[in-house]
Amino acid sequence: MIRASLSKSWILEVAARSLTSFAVFRESQWKERYLEVYSLIGPFKEQLEAYRAECQHLEQEKGEVVGEIHKLAEQYADILGHQNHKQKIRHLVKLKDQNFELKEEVQKLKRTVDKLQKERATNKPLKASVTTPVKGKENHTPSCKSLQLSPSTKPFSQKNAM
């Protein structure tokens, strides 16, 4: 009986050790996977944050536009005084649709302007790296500035004309 209880306790102890070693092994596997995924996502984190900020900005803008549409519709309904109620309703619906289309167009144009400004901002560092001179090269001019004429020099055809 003592031997049976010792063997049971020994089996339980071995099982506990194997479970803890397995848990440690799985934990290390998950940590490795996490670090791998994080290293893949890391370079794009700034882009994700920029997209999130842009989304919030657009949602806020949308809310402001919808509120402005309702406000203008109420003001216009108060000002407008059609005698025929059906004409008034049709006219208001038409104006609301036109107003909504114009607001959407303004939003699209703002988005394209923002997008172009972001692209322009991301392209500026590339231009700066291209215009840096190469060490050891005397005549290396990466930009076309050497091709531009200064005010004191005239094109060849103008020199011959004088």
Rank of each mutant, 00 (worst) to 15 (best):
I2R: 12
R3I: 08
S5P: 00
S7A: 13
S7M: 12
S9H: 08
S9P: 00
W10C: 02
W10D: 06
E13T: 04
E13D: 13
V14G: 01
A15P: 00
A16I: 07
R17T: 13
R17G: 03
L19Q: 03
T20C: 06
V24N: 11
F25M: 11
S28D: 13
S28N: 12
Q29S: 04
Q29L: 14
W30N: 04
E32K: 13
Y34S: 07
V37G: 00
Y38A: 12
Y38G: 00
Y38Q: 10
Y38S: 08
Y38M: 06
S39M: 09
L40A: 06
I41R: 03
P43E: 12
F44D: 11
F44C: 10
L48P: 00
L48V: 03
E49M: 08
A50H: 07
A50N: 09
A50T: 13
Y51V: 05
Y51D: 11
C55N: 08
C55Q: 08
L58M: 07
E61C: 00
E64M: 05
E64C: 03
E68L: 09
K71W: 02
K71T: 05
L72R: 14
A73I: 02
A73E: 14
E74P: 00
A77M: 09
D78G: 05
L80Y: 12
L80I: 10
G81M: 08
H82T: 05
N84C: 07
N84L: 07
H85T: 15
H85R: 15
K86M: 12
K86V: 14
Q87T: 10
Q87R: 05
R90H: 10
H91Q: 14
L92D: 00
V93A: 14
V93F: 02
K94W: 08
K96G: 04
D97K: 06
N99E: 05
F100P: 00
F100V: 06
K103W: 01
V106S: 01
V106A: 03
V106W: 01
Q107A: 15
Q107L: 15
K108R: 07
L109K: 11
R111W: 00
R111G: 00
K115A: 13
L116K: 05
Q117G: 01
K118W: 08
A121F: 03
T122R: 07
P125N: 05
P125T: 05
P125I: 04
K127Y: 02
V130T: 07
T131Y: 05
T131N: 12
T131D: 14
T132W: 02
P133M: 01
P133A: 02
V134A: 04
K135Q: 09
K137Q: 12
E138Y: 09
H140L: 08
T141E: 11
P142G: 15
K145C: 13
P151N: 08
P151G: 04
P155S: 09
P155I: 11
F156A: 09
S157W: 14
S157Y: 14
N160L: 15
